[in-house]
Design a protein around this nucleic acid. Structure first.
Lengths: 224, 224
DNA sequence: TGTCATAGTTGAACACGTTCAAAAGATGGA
DNA sequence: TCCATCTTTTGAACGTGTTCAACTATGACA
């Protein structure tokens, strides 16, 4: 059985209990304490059974990660419905991620390992992650949709993906951020968002427009 | 003994033989074959002895990584001495890296997977990587030093580090690049470098200057 | 009911990175 | 030379993620 196949209720229940056990152990004891044996014990199943549902510990962590993503989509609804200008919407969505992800910061590095392993199906750039990635990109599409930003059409089309890349960069910073409550990441978002807003408005300047067109062309060239 | 303490000739010899064994196994069998036991065997020492010289497998891999960095610094000399304008110098240095790293592309994914974790000594942002990182940043300082680029002083001071960050982005792209000889990465460099050149020249435009100042301010804010 | 294929479950076993107490070797002063 | 101290070397042992052959439970069909 793959990790995404349809499942019976009983199997789904066992599967969820393993995720719950992992979540509990992650929160209480950190990543190192959450061994597969401990997780299986806590879930009341055997080690082999845990591997029946999750083909590796990373896949199990990924299921955990998926819940963070879903929580982010939900938390992003507030700013997306209340904020009208681009900076407010973008800041709201980015800070919502920092809020949602905060409890998991301690072992977030383990998540991030997936980003750099190209052969892993868990990589955010991989074929297997297409759905999750496009959902995240779509979220940034909604940041733009409701905003007051006026942009060149070609740039406008690329921007959701570029904003998603920005978010990946912020996640990279966040992973390395050891400040209390990841305050430095919040500061980064607060300061970077208005700058991005100003940069985007500059793209309509005569001298800048040509460069923007080249950048869009470059994106088209390197996209798989 | 730490990994950087002064060493006797005999100890240095043993140390180097372990690195050589690791290099050989990496080249012939890939990352997975190069177990600590196999490396120690190949080097003619015990496993425990290998750990006497390298406090972890990642530290051993880092010694390997350092040699790539050194090879890049050497390969970068050619464009740095022959090219006079910024685009030529930057392109030369970036493509030199792609050339030097090409033989290691196959297992670079495994390598960078470990490097992506913040707690890993292999992380380019880590304490252990300070020397290699600063050398790489210095290399980009030399890209600028010999070039014709006229820039705002504050931006000029940050630019080597920013160019190094650009290189990290290119490395990330390269890791995921499965094209023949990593041709797509070379295309990316060829196309991106003139764009960066034009963007940097735009920073002197009246409307742009203010944003650049803000960006420099942001960098100062978030730098550790 | 009985049969049988499929789904689910088990825990011992494997190879790995890593540790550590102990042994062996090197060094230098008395 | 002998002893003391420090450096280097050893390999068995530990805990980890992971695998797998064997087992049990489920349910569809006769």
């Amino acid at each position: 059985m793959t990790d995404t196949a349809p499942r019976s209720s009983k199997a789904e229940q066992t599967r969820q209990s393993i995720i719950d056990a992992a979540m509990g152990l992650f929160r209480s004891g950190g990543y190192d304490q959450a061994t597969m044996r401990a997780i299986a014990d806590e879930a009341g199943v055997s080690v082999g059974n845990a591997y029946y549902y999750f083909s590796s510990k990373e896949h199990l962590i990924q299921a955990y990660y998926d819940q963070i993503q879903a929580a982010h989509a939900e938390a992003a609804e507030a700013p997306l419905s209340s904020e009208g200008d681009f900076t407010g919407r973008l800041r709201g969505v980015l800070l919502a991620w920092v809020d949602v992800a905060e409890p998991y910061h301690e072992f977030a590095g383990k998540f991030f390992k997936n980003a750099a392993e190209p052969s892993s199906p868990l990589s955010p750039f991989s074929e297997d992650s297409t759905a999750a990635r496009e959902a995240a990109i779509e979220l940034h599409g909604r940041v733009l949709d409701g905003s007051d930003l006026k942009l060149n059409k070609a740039l406008r089309e690329e921007l959701p993906e570029l904003l998603w890349l920005l978010q990946m960069g912020i996640v990279l910073f966040w992973v390395h951020d050891t400040s209390d409550g990841q305050q430095r990441t919040r500061d980064l978002v607060d300061q970077a968002v208005p700058i991005i807003d100003r940069m985007l408005r500059l793209t309509r300047l005569p001298g800048v427009r040509g460069v923007v067109d080249d950048i869009v062309g470059l994106i088209h060239l390197i996209r798989p």
